[in-house]
Design a protein around this nucleic acid. Structure first.
Lengths: 340, 340
DNA sequence: CTGAAAGCGCTTACAG
DNA sequence: CTGAAAGCGCTTACAG
């Protein structure tokens, strides 16, 4: 049996209220009692019961992070691990704890998150995957739970979010290729219901249309894995032989595309230029080093947590943060046919 | 204000006890009241308060997972992400939740875990990194908290753990190289305080000594990153030019070593054989595909969780699970000088 | 400055 | 079968 405040009170010859006040550092307690109680606290190795406190304070002191992809590809992707790191640092600094909810499907995610929130097990939630039509986000909005999305929530929801401008980012990546002289530029992307995929596609299409070019049919992947990137690139390069440059919405996909190009006997960048997204840790050490759009993923995690904490504390109702994106030109892009 | 059991009781015209019994599915309640209460429950959208329940049941319903490396390299490593996935699946299936505790140092880890446990915020903890002299594990053992280590706990602690036989695994990797005819075999490893590094070293040394060979000076890394693997391999290959084969205790390190070999103009496997550990998802798609010792990481996560749940439930006191390891020969190993 | 009382939202013997 | 009471471990007005 763990020692309770009552045990301490009895031993110190005071009331539980007094012990509680000493623990809380209430200035009102006389020095003598404070010291005596403090000594007993220490001697008995008292540790406050977080659950009892939560019940009174009506806050769990825990925030949730929901990851709804099959964890196999979520965790394998540096994007998520960096986001988690940012969230963890910020949440920890605030003295709160982080509960991890993993779900394989949007339905499961919805159930998990709502159960956690409704049962007051968590005070708020960060949702790491935004879908174009997201029931969870809508419900969160309606029921007024503190929540922030990493990504773009469905239109019409009054949600807090943290995002980078994926339209602009997609445009930036594509414009780079256009400016190098490419006329046939392909795109490897994920499901259309994923907001960031849709947005990057729009940026891609805008850049092309501004240059008077036509988009190629998108090569879709199901999972954000190297293998899926490989397969998608192979299909794309076979079906559209004139494609001289490819944008992949994720560095892991780009890595797969790089291998596919090799497998088809195409040199990168001479025969095929390639741009990724995220600037994952490995991007710079690929062979050749990958040109990519750097997203400030760790920072997005921190900002998401910072916002959530403010929502939970009630010091804000709605907060949004747009993070920066930067094109990092390395060695997988050059004019069609080779440098110069 | 969320609706409580009292609100429901009032509306349904029964006592809170009765409502509670209906929720718990107590068979003793009359059909009529059961149905009436159930209707009100639904109508009022009642959701039980997990915190209040935890207080009574004296269990949080949450288990912790502690990750103590700098998250930057922990998460980037497929080992951890697979472990998390296994744990998450098992914990979720049992209807419990998972709290993630990340710490940058062993000291921080100790503080975090003990706070979580002592404050009864979590019912037990899975510690994902075992150190040779681990204060945390010793304290966990002494204070009798349900805990399981992924890896080998310090000698003398009566802890539950899940591990693969790293001595045998290190030996298996090295014997493979010996049997190919290598006489000068290097090792890239992490800090000696990490149990799995120490164990794999022992296996490595045993295999060599059985063949009448001498170990090379170990090339140590600080972080389990590609970069550190690169640097360590470069040092090793420069200092010990006769080394014709290298064992890296981790696939990510092996990837760095592969790049270092290339940078030094050594072909793999003709001029340098390379064996990794873990069979990370990318291992098979490296160029050339990596020979590695496959560890059943997902399974280790599941087993760790399964054991922890039994400790928490009190249906066991001490449980240990040794998982299998398997040598997967791919294309980074061959006899010195090239095939045949 | 300190204590007794009430209460956070539940559950569960104990009566009836 | 159902309710009143006690209690999980704390906090906090309210008295004094």
């Amino acid at each position: 049996m763990p020692v309770t405040i009552k045990d301490v009170a009895r031993r110190a010859g005071v009331s539980p209220s007094t012990v509680s006040r000493v623990i809380a550092g209430s200035g009102v307690i006389s020095r003598a009692t404070r010291e005596r109680v403090a000594a007993v606290l220490k001697e008995m190795r008292y540790h406050p019961n977080a659950v009892a406190r939560s019940l009174i304070r009506r806050e769990a002191g825990i925030v949730g992070l929901s990851i709804s992809r099959p964890a196999s590809d979520a965790f394998a992707n540096a994007f998520f691990t960096e986001v988690i790191r940012g969230i963890g640092d910020e949440v920890g600094a605030a003295g709160l704890d982080l509960l991890l909810s993993m779900s394989a499907t949007p339905q499961e995610e919805q159930e998990h998150c709502l159960r956690l929130l409704r049962s007051r097990r968590i005070d708020g939630v960060i949702v790491s995957t935004a879908r174009v039509a997201d029931d969870l986000l809508k419900t969160l909005d309606q029921e007024g739970f503190p929540a922030v999305v990493v990504g773009r929530p469905p239109a019409g929801t009054r949600m807090s979010w943290v995002n980078n401008d994926n339209v602009a980012a997609g445009r930036m990546a594509t414009e780079h290729l256009v400016s190098l002289g490419h006329r046939h530029i392909g795109l490897i992307s994920g499901a259309e219901e994923l907001s960031f995929c849709r947005d990057r596609y729009r940026g891609y299409a805008m850049a092309l249309s501004a240059a008077g070019l036509e988009p190629e049919p998108v090569a879709h992947v199901v999972h954000f894995t190297r293998q899926d990137g490989f397969d998608a690139a192979r299909r794309l390069l076979r079906d559209r032989p004139r494609v001289s440059a490819v944008v992949a919405v994720d560095d892991t996909l780009a890595t797969g595309a790089l291998q596919a190009a090799r497998a088809l006997g195409r040199r990168v960048p001479e025969d095929l230029s390639l741009v990724g997204f995220n600037d994952d840790p490995f991007a710079a050490s690929l062979d050749p080093p990958l040109t990519t759009v750097r997203i400030q993923v760790y920072d997005m995690g921190r900002q998401a947590a910072r916002i959530l904490l403010r929502l939970v504390a009630g010091t804000a109702k709605l907060l949004r943060y747009r993070s920066a994106a930067e094109l990092v030109v390395r060695a997988t892009t050059c004019p069609p046919g080779g440098p110069r």
